[in-house]
Amino acid sequence: MTQYFIRRLLLIVPTFIGITVLVFVITRFVPGGPIERMIAEVQQASMQAGGSMQSAGSGVGAATLDEDQIRELEKYYGFDKPVLVSYWEWLLKVVQFDLGTSSRYSEPVWDTIKERLPVSAFYGIVTMLITYFISIPLGYYKAVKHNSHFDHASSVVVFIGYAIPSYVVGIILLVVFASNLEWFPMGGFYGDEFEDMESIWQQIGDIFYHAALPLLAYVAGSFAVMTFMMKNALMDNLAADYVRTAIAKGIPFRQAITRHAMRNSLIPIATHFGNNISVIIGGSFLIEKIFNIDGLGLLGYESIVERDYPIVLGVLVISAILQLLGNILSDICVAVVDPRVQFR
């Protein structure tokens, strides 16, 4: 088993290289890269200055940047070398934890990411905890009370939450509870007085006060799948022969569920566990945008729009590693809960 996981860990290396090569090459060939942007900016600036009467259509760069300047820029961004050579240089730096410098903020990529990561991780982890705390008991109760009024009513709620995209839930929450009722703030990760707060508890309270609506938006979409996975797994197991055996042994029905059926029903939930981690830490840029949260999702999205490739690649590095580790974590979870699983 240990051997298997060591092999899995080693396999991260080629997978990681595969993912990053692909994205690196794409960034090279997608139009509108940083140099073209810079040219456009200079062009715009000169046009606004009114000094130029040249028509906008005549030659892209010639009007504003000469060949030497462009070459210098290409050198700065490493575009003067073949793709694979500059990829290799980038990779060597990544291995030394140097993700380069953001072309937009002109500060180290790692610092930018480091600033946002805890915000996204906070939302991700809290969302996951809430989801598990709702879904597992709810799924359990729905399975035991299958076909009851409670079961039907909760299904309606769960499916509505599932059917409405989370950003729409976010907007509705924002309009109702922040704008109309003014119960919650409009957005942000914490309030303006955060730094001046005396105790850590006040600060935590403030974070959750700001987090309430976005968390609701996150949770509304994610607990449907988990709840039904739990309910269906438990129903399958309740009908299983070994539960009948347990009852035939003289175990009361409730205990047969909690001791026997539950453990088996957690197997599919455990399979999902690792995936959730990686997906959730990435954050949803739509929800982050709506609630004005400076998270990783928003950062990644904006840097793609702005062609800030060092950040795009930096975010990719983080999320790829999380995804790969998450997959392995899933497998470990499955191996822990299901003795039949043998990794060789």
Binding site: D241, Y242, R244, T245, A248, K249, R263, N264, R340
Partner: peptide, 19 residues
């Protein structure tokens, strides 16, 4: 059940809890 009247079933493959 299980004490004074006990029962065994048809499918030994599934009658025991796998975990």
């Amino acid at each position: 059940r299980g004490n004074r009247i006990a029962m065994i079933f048809q499918e030994p493959m599934t009658a025991l809890n796998p975990v």
